[in-house]
Design a protein around this nucleic acid. Sequence first.
DNA 1: GTGTACATGTAATCCGTTACATGATTCC
DNA 2: GGAATCATGTAACGGATTACATGTACAC
Lengths: 211, 211
Amino acid sequence: MTSRQFSNKQDMERQLPPTAWAVLGLLSFPGERTGYELKKWADASLRFFYWSPAISQIYAELRRLEALGYATSRRSGPEEPRTKRRYAISEAGRAALTAWADSPEAAGPAVLKHPLVLRIWLGHLAAPARLRALVEEHLARTEAELGQVRAALARAEDNAEWAHPRIALRWSELRELAELELARAMLADLDRLTPPQGGDPADHDGWPGPG
Amino acid sequence: MTSRQFSNKQDMERQLPPTAWAVLGLLSFPGERTGYELKKWADASLRFFYWSPAISQIYAELRRLEALGYATSRRSGPEEPRTKRRYAISEAGRAALTAWADSPEAAGPAVLKHPLVLRIWLGHLAAPARLRALVEEHLARTEAELGQVRAALARAEDNAEWAHPRIALRWSELRELAELELARAMLADLDRLTPPQGGDPADHDGWPGPG
DNA sequence: GTGTACATGTAATCCGTTACATGATTCC
DNA sequence: GGAATCATGTAACGGATTACATGTACAC
């Protein structure tokens, strides 16, 4: 059982990856949850400021957390394989999570991997119209994400228990807004470099060529 | 040689990870470079909008690129182990990179992992003064990064060859500025939640307690 | 002659994903 | 009874890091 990837308890305790704390954090809010529910919640909210692990990893983290005594699980009904398993944080888990959350160590630097900007950075190899189209797609996606953040914010109940998650979501909302601004400014920079030919900016590839 | 992690050429060509394109992209600008130089360059500029791979990974990517025929290398002087090796992009490499950069596929969604916001999200477990201190540290780090972006921008020569990297850096500059705004807004949200006690906001931990 | 930056590389290990397998529950 | 969604899990693999090993060049 417990898959051989975690050799022993001492090794695990040394320092858990942020993902483990994030999953334990999900569990720290009231209620018992299944891995599946945790994944949906991460998709709907955690991912806007941190990241949403693959479902298989959530299950792996839950097993690790349980092996460490930081979480407990129980099956609803018969103890059979592949039946629903609900997890809850344990006292030890809450203590460990609190120690982590309240530790004086600075939060690490944010990691940003922005494939769009990577493509723009190599823009000398692409057609200007292509670059503009990529930015437009990014604008559309960002607007959709903004809608999702606002939906999450609307769902977050207005009581003290959820005050901090609301601040994180509010930060995410402002971030999506800033992302839109950034993309628009980049579009303007691109236009300044190679002014778009007359006509609908999306319906042609006309362009002098790279050589 | 070429370490067993890359089994054969077909496997590799299927689709290179973005990191490989980023390294090849570094090579696409004029000049021959060593892995070490690439790492410094990535630290000084790529990392602000994408990410800076570990030096050992840069060497691994360079070996893969060479195995694919996308890059060539030569040793300056004697062909001995651990002497300087300079890489250059090949014609095939430039063609492959161009095909990637100019492809109609949308750039993937940006990945953001923001440990600070993760800690704030779990703020119900920490002392308010702790959270404020975390945000202050983030502000200081962000200001330092802004300076580094501006330094990179100042170094980027003002000629057509570097126009797109300049746009990427300009985007990064605006992003750092937005990051400062976001952090300040979060600080205001935190203050609204638990108004800071009188006195210098940095010199006490006084706080009613979690229970 | 010592420390620092330059420079390359290997080994071990972990993080995380995709693909796959399996089965329960719900709704039409 | 069939489809969609809920739900859990394994296997294989690749991406990426850290720690370590090794050596050169140069400034003080």
